[in-house]
Write a protein that binds this DNA or RNA. Structure first.
Lengths: 109, 109
DNA sequence: TACATTTATCGCTATATTGCTATAAACAAA
DNA sequence: TTTGTTTATAGCAATATAGCGATAAATGTA
């Protein structure tokens, strides 16, 4: 039905999946890379960097914002976006939690 | 159009996004956690662990397999699935590459 | 051969996602 | 006030995803 049965999973599983999903588009990866690269917060010149229409970029920004990875503050007519450092560390911790479960060379098939 | 414009992005961005997308569902997170937990490869008792119908689990397995995170070998009537260790390290490296770009406390908005 | 077990696939429905154009909203400057 | 700049939203079309039941395919066992 295109509808995920979130109630069947733990909140950690749902959180991690939601974050992964937010990272699951090359445009959003590109946005995050830009925000990480430029220490100073970037606004809508992402539109110049990424070959997508302005409303499309805006949509992707909204999605990243909705999971808390980025935040934006209004600065005159434009909006300054940046990585939310606190959340970013949570993201790292969640992914590393998954990665670290792997025992070296447990391949068996 | 529901169609990602992959040609606008680098192959690294597309790869990372594809992997993140594959992890972007709680059932697939649950599957990976199970595979990581049980050193020995698990087959379709994932169906007993996860509250989804067998065809749905099979679909999710197929998706994880298509990006190379897991692999399966036929063992009699059943199929042994497990994490592909080599690929898993690549996944880690790609995500860490993104994470490591973050300079501590660069929050600015 | 016939039957059971296990997994994959088909076919369907409902919903989500991606992209665009057009337009609105918010603000600064003339 | 009017104009320009910037970002967000509305609305649409095309495609993708998630879920299921039914069924096929593959193999082991009686």
């Amino acid at each position: 039905m295109g509808l995920t049965k979130t109630e069947n999973f733990t909140s950690e599983q749902n959180d991690l999946a939601a974050l992964a999903k937010a990272l699951g588009h090359p445009a959003r990866i590109a946005i995050i890379q830009q925000l990480l690269k430029s220490n100073t917060c970037i606004c809508g010149d992402l539109v110049n960097e990424i070959a997508l229409a302005q409303p499309t970029i805006s949509r992707h920004l909204k999605e990243l914002k909705s999971v808390g990875i980025i935040k934006g503050t209004i600065e005159g007519t434009s909006v300054n976006y940046c990585i939310d450092g606190q959340k970013w560390r949570v993201v790292q911790a969640l992914f590393n939690g998954l990665f670290d479960t792997y025992v070296l060379d447990q391949d068996c098939c």
